[in-house]
Design a protein around this nucleic acid. Structure first.
Lengths: 238, 238
DNA sequence: CGTTGTTCGTGATGCCAATCACACACTGGG
DNA sequence: CCCAGTGTGTGATTGGCATCACGAACAACG
């Protein structure tokens, strides 16, 4: 089965390769089957906005392939990216459950696929499968903690370099505890990194230069090598 | 009935003067009665910390009298106040429900009274009274939106003056739409205001001076007169 | 009362990061 | 192949705000 943008469509949740480890994916069989019935799947090109900050919620999106960035903007064009979502993530959950406007915009960063579940169908589904409702509550609470993490980063972390170090650390897996170099695939532009840490493109560029000079990292094309995790950790204050 | 600190103790939720309009206060009679049984009440002096960021949650506090500030701090002493709570507010709800560490510290800003409900008793109570559980979910979702509001303020509002204007507006009731002066009682020190908008005490002092000079406000002792709401609104960009 | 501690106002100084301004690299398309 | 569009590196300049450093105002209290 083939689709535009060089993607393979996954239209059956039961045989989805990302089924493990995710809310709405890793569920008991009957629930997944039901979910498979009420969802509709679609393929989206890069830059599609799945939903926009301030809209009344229509439902949730379950990302099947591709990455999406969640961000909020002010009227004068400034924007902050609060999260980069990957396959398996559920987008728009809080807004949909509580029937308040979407608090962020979700935009595809690359071509991808997502399942849509309309609000009414979702609520009905949750009523039917109580254990899933519980997992939704847990997810909401997790989202809340993530939001607070963001508040701490924005409010307590003063300097761009500290925020940058924090971001780099958030990218390197915490296992592999030795301080050996970590290889990470970078899909973000400097502009987007700037929007994640609340600074400008130029400053991010200079941060890369500085950190390279200090032997903290290397960049070969789109792969990033983090050389010195311990030193990065010493730069934090939270 | 009298207590230290010049407070009257309220030890019966059924006849509490703040019963209206608040989660856990404005509830159906049987629920309030049950609540009244499982709660324990106590009077706290100024500066008491009801709970501290990072602690495992013991339960929730329902503020009966007095104000409390919620804040989070970094190891180098910087702190941001995320909310000033008043009588009727429930503190520590998200942490208690989800059994994660308190995400903020709650400190009394003046002598006051609070009811404590232990985690186990609360969960049992919620299981028993389903409609209350629903209201808890609503409250959690509301908290999430408030957190996002904070993220927007911290991340998108660049200048201290803009954040200050925003804060002033958040203090003035949105009714009374005419642009007549609004009188507000100010209980915060400049230091605390600085911690709310992420700047320094000195800058707040200068902001007051600037805004006075521009006829935007006046201060007589601890009462604040906001003179020109429309101009304040024009300073915002969100 | 004076003493002590907190809060407030304001000047002087310095620095960091936003801004402006280019030049260069890389990509995909006609 | 060139060309337009997008991303990247880096200098120069500047201004806003943190920081330091006082002194004054004010409250609490023995």
């Amino acid at each position: 089965m083939h689709a535009p943008y060089g993607l393979n469509i996954i239209d059956n949740c039961l045989i989805c390769p990302v089924r493990e480890e995710h809310l709405f994916c890793n569920l008991p069989l009957p629930a997944v089957q039901k979910l498979n019935e009420i969802k509709s799947t679609a393929v989206y090109p890069k830059s599609t906005m799945l939903f926009i900050e301030g809209q009344q919620p229509r439902g949730v999106f379950v990302l099947c392939a591709g990455k999406a960035k969640l961000f909020t903007s002010s009227s004068d064009g400034k924007t902050i990216i609060t999260k980069v979502s990957e396959a398996g993530d559920v987008l728009g959950l809080n807004a949909t459950i509580s029937d308040r406007p979407y608090e962020v915009t979700a935009e595809m960063m690359e071509p991808g696929q997502a399942n849509f579940i309309a609000r009414d169908a979702l609520l009905q589904f949750l009523r039917e499968y109580g254990e899933v409702a519980l997992r939704v509550a847990e997810q909401l609470s997790r989202n809340y903690y993530i939001a607070y993490e963001e508040i701490r980063t924005l409010g307590l972390t003063s300097s761009p370099s500290e925020k940058f170090a924090k971001l780099l650390l958030s990218w390197s897996p915490d296992k592999g505890n030795a301080n050996e170099p970590v290889h990470v695939k970078m899909t973000l532009t400097h502009e987007e990194i700037a929007e994640m840490i609340g600074t400008t493109r130029e400053t991010v560029s200079r941060l890369f230069s500085d950190f390279r000079r200090k032997q903290l990292l290397e960049t070969k094309g789109s792969t990033l090598v983090i050389r010195n995790k311990p030193t990065l950790e010493k730069m934090l204050n939270s």
